[in-house]
């Protein structure tokens, strides 16, 4: 029996060492790549002074095209949105952005609209994409701030990376193999961070806005983002993306907001109820650029002439 325990102990140690090395290697490969937004920001974005950044979920990712906005306004912006994320993830992304020594005048938050009111925030599905930076305190602290199992797994991965890499193997390990060969490969976004949904044939019907949603901006993480923005002299703007049939009623005036929930009135511009397609994106980005220009002009005027 002694022999058995000796051997099994040896086997386990070798196994742990191997998994540890593989996990470290996997995270290293992802950290050096442009595959996910957090490492894309670190490795592929050379600009350090931005006029605006967009932080959002799939709505922000697919609605506001920074290339189009930049060409209209001659500004420098970047889209740092990630699909399947909530306002907490956008808070983490802002911290990550600032930790890289980058600055911006405007921070546009564009999450799914329900996220604005969410008070019991949970870890978002794609927050594992920061795992390669878990050695940074703000990332680790962020994971520690949640109670769910996935958050614990990510949190423990600081010291035992094989836990997170194993749990999220499809999302972390396979891409890491890919990025070893193609470090510049991006996970479905362009070099300015944008992605668009294709145009499916949909009816050319006008939309009736029957559903109303009250927005009180109750998310505690939104308050944290505001504080962080204030500390870094960044103007925060809450963007409400176009929706098919839902209009928004904002009941909290403490946040600057752009409500584009009803800006698109025809179904042919939508991919689904919450996302525009590439045609809708053109419309939405154009409208956004116009508002942003007005906001900037007003700010310049205020700065020159006082309130």
């Amino acid at each position: 029996m002694k022999l058995f325990f000796k051997k099994i102990g040896g086997v386990l140690i070798v196994f742990l060492v191997l998994t540890f090395l593989l996990s470290i290697g996997s995270l290293w490969s992802l950290r050096k790549s442009s595959f996910y937004k957090p490492s894309f920001l670190v490795n592929a974005v050379e600009t350090s002074k931005f006029d605006y950044i967009i932080l959002g979920a799939s709505t922000g990712l697919t609605t506001l095209d920074t290339k189009q906005i930049d060409s209209i306004l001659e500004l420098t912006g970047i889209n740092l949105s990630m699909d399947d994320t909530g306002i907490p993830s956008q808070y983490l992304m802002l911290k990550h952005f600032l930790a890289e020594g980058k600055t911006t005048r405007y921070c546009i938050i564009a999450p799914g609209v329900s996220s604005y009111n969410a008070q019991n925030e949970k870890l978002s599905d794609n927050d594992y994409r920061f795992l390669m930076f878990t050695n940074r305190d703000y990332v680790h602290d962020y994971y520690k701030g949640f109670e769910d199992t996935e958050a614990k797994i990510l949190s423990y991965s600081k010291h035992a990376p094989f836990i997170g890499v194993s749990f999220y193997n499809a999302e972390l390990f396979y891409p890491s193999l890919l990025t070893l060969l193609q470090p510049d490969k991006r996970n479905r976004f362009d070099n300015k961070g944008n992605y668009t949904y294709p145009v499916f044939q949909r009816n050319n019907d006008s939309i009736r806005f029957e559903k109303e949603l009250k927005l009180a901006f109750r998310s505690p993480y939104l308050a944290k983002i505001k504080t962080l923005c204030d500390q870094n002299n960044i103007q925060l703007i809450c963007y409400i993306s176009p929706m098919e049939g839902t209009k928004v009623n904002i009941t909290n005036s403490n946040y600057k907001s752009i409500d584009h929930s009803q800006i698109i009135k025809n179904k042919k511009y939508f991919y689904d109820k919450d996302h525009v397609n590439s045609l809708g994106r053109i419309q939405a980005s154009k409208a956004f650029a116009q508002i942003l220009k007005e906001v900037m002009t007003l700010e310049t005027y205020v700065n020159k002439n006082g309130d």
Partner: peptide
């Protein structure tokens, strides 16, 4: 063992 660890669904 590694396949289980890294390719397990």
């Amino acid at each position: 063992a590694m396949i289980i660890f890294l390719f397990g669904g």
